[in-house]
């Protein structure tokens, strides 16, 4: 059902934990649906110097969170914002169709944490081309394939 990469990131999650006094924190998802992702960012000179996550959810939710942190660590904000759920899926060597929404949640968690950083620093999200600041709750079937 899951690829070896998914099982690896599930069993040995990278960057799991919290960052005290994080520069940006994003939390997406909904306990009712069984998925919550919380992403912590440390940002220095526009670069994500550290990232940690905490996730309540299934194996895919934990693995996509872990992979998303790896993909954005050390990246510039504008590059981290380009992270797509597809990139997360590819990096994990695929996900079962019913788990695609977990990768969407990971993408949204990264965006939410960056938005939080921008708001705290009074930076207009439009500088980075972000128009929709609502995001999704990760609790619908719309993303499911």
């Amino acid at each position: 059902m899951y690829s070896e990469k998914v099982m690896d990131h599930f069993s040995n999650p990278r960057n799991m934990g919290e960052i005290p006094n994080a520069d940006g924190i994003g939390e997406v998802g909904n306990a009712k649906c069984g998925d919550i992702m919380k992403m912590y960012l440390k940002i220095d000179n526009g670069i994500i110097s550290d990232v940690k996550f905490k996730t309540f959810g299934c194996g895919a939710a934990i693995a996509t969170s872990s992979m998303a942190t790896e993909l954005i660590k050390g990246k510039k904000i504008e590059d981290a914002l380009k992270l797509t759920n597809k990139a997360v899926i590819e990096a994990l060597d695929g996900l079962p169709a019913v788990k695609i929404h977990c990768s969407v949640l990971a993408e949204e968690a990264v965006k939410a944490a960056i938005l939080d950083y921008l708001k705290k620093n009074n930076i207009d999200p439009m500088v980075y081309g972000i128009e929709n600041t609502e995001g999704c709750t990760g609790c619908c079937s719309a993303c499911e394939v």
Partner: peptide, 14 residues
């Protein structure tokens, strides 16, 4: 409470 069943099952399976 506070954890999800599929993650529990995968861990048990391991």
């Amino acid at each position: 409470k506070y954890v999800e069943g599929e993650a529990l099952l995968l861990s048990l399976d391991l």
